[in-house]
């Protein structure tokens, strides 16, 4: 597989999604609600970091891309940069994103485009992330009154970041509309089983300037990058 043939914009988009979400999940280390979840969240974070490294390396030097780009040059979805919040927010973010990622990678893996080989490996990992998110959505939604309420709030709060996933990305040869239909159907089904309702309201921000894929991010992302890049940038040219 000649990885250099990957379309740059698409590789950056998918690579940044994985990089940023992995970082957010990494913030859970030492804070998870139960030890078994420490292990599970770290597994997902490590899978995503592995995907990010492969994708970014096809575009350039993985560390230069991760550590030396400014905020406006990142192409990840705003969804994945959202702070962890409580466990319900993290699970809602996982549910929305991993369902999208799984549906997308399954299509890419089944096609003969430049991402087929990479997606074929990642789709197995992502299937597990999706399953993890669904299992927890069911338990929190249909658990106690408190957990139901927290899960409902989390699903609502992140809903407005979900529209961006289905805007066409240059170099990604997928039918965005069909992807969105499948996503809505799957999310609707999981939420129904979790005794939650599909959130109402818009699925994207009312800002014509765009969103993450165009390099426009939310405020928490700048602080996340400051933390992530600080040490690397403090020692220009050093190797680690």
């Amino acid at each position: 597989m000649t990885t250099t043939a990957l379309p740059t914009a698409a590789a950056l988009a998918l690579g940044d999604d994985a990089l940023v979400l992995s970082h957010r999940l990494g913030e859970w280390a030492g804070h998870a609600p139960v030890l078994e979840e420490e292990v599970a969240l770290a597994n997902i974070a490590l899978d995503l970091l592995g995907q990010a490294r492969v994708l970014l390396s096809t575009v350039g030097d993985e560390d230069e891309l991760a550590y030396l780009r400014e905020e406006r040059a990142f192409r990840n979805l705003q969804l994945v940069e959202q702070p962890n919040g409580d466990f319900a927010h993290t699970i809602a973010r996982q549910l929305y994103f991993s369902t999208y990622q799984h549906l997308l990678y399954a299509r890419l893996a089944g096609g003969d485009g430049p991402f087929a080989g990479l997606a074929a490996k990642a789709v197995k990992e992502v299937a597990y992330h999706r399953d993890h998110a669904e299992q927890w959505t069911l338990r929190l939604g249909d658990g106690t009154e408190l957990s139901h309420e927290r899960m409902r709030r989390a699903c609502d709060a992140l809903w407005r970041f979900t529209g961006e996933m289905f805007r066409p990305v240059e170099g990604l040869d997928v039918d965005s509309e069909a992807l969105e239909r499948d996503w809505l159907e799957s999310i609707g089904e999981v939420l129904r089983r979790a005794t939650l309702s599909v959130p109402e309201g818009p699925r994207s921000g009312a800002w014509t300037a765009g969103a993450g894929r165009e390099g426009l991010h939310t405020e928490p992302f700048g602080r996340m990058l400051a933390e992530m890049q600080h040490l690397h940038r403090s020692h220009p040219g050093a190797s680690w």
Partner: peptide, 20 residues
């Protein structure tokens, strides 16, 4: 051994813990 609320999560936790 491990702790889990039910069989499904027990299976998943086992995968994460004992086969990583």
């Amino acid at each position: 051994s491990l702790h889990a609320p039910d069989a499904e999560l027990a299976l998943r936790n086992a995968r994460d813990l004992y086969t990583r």
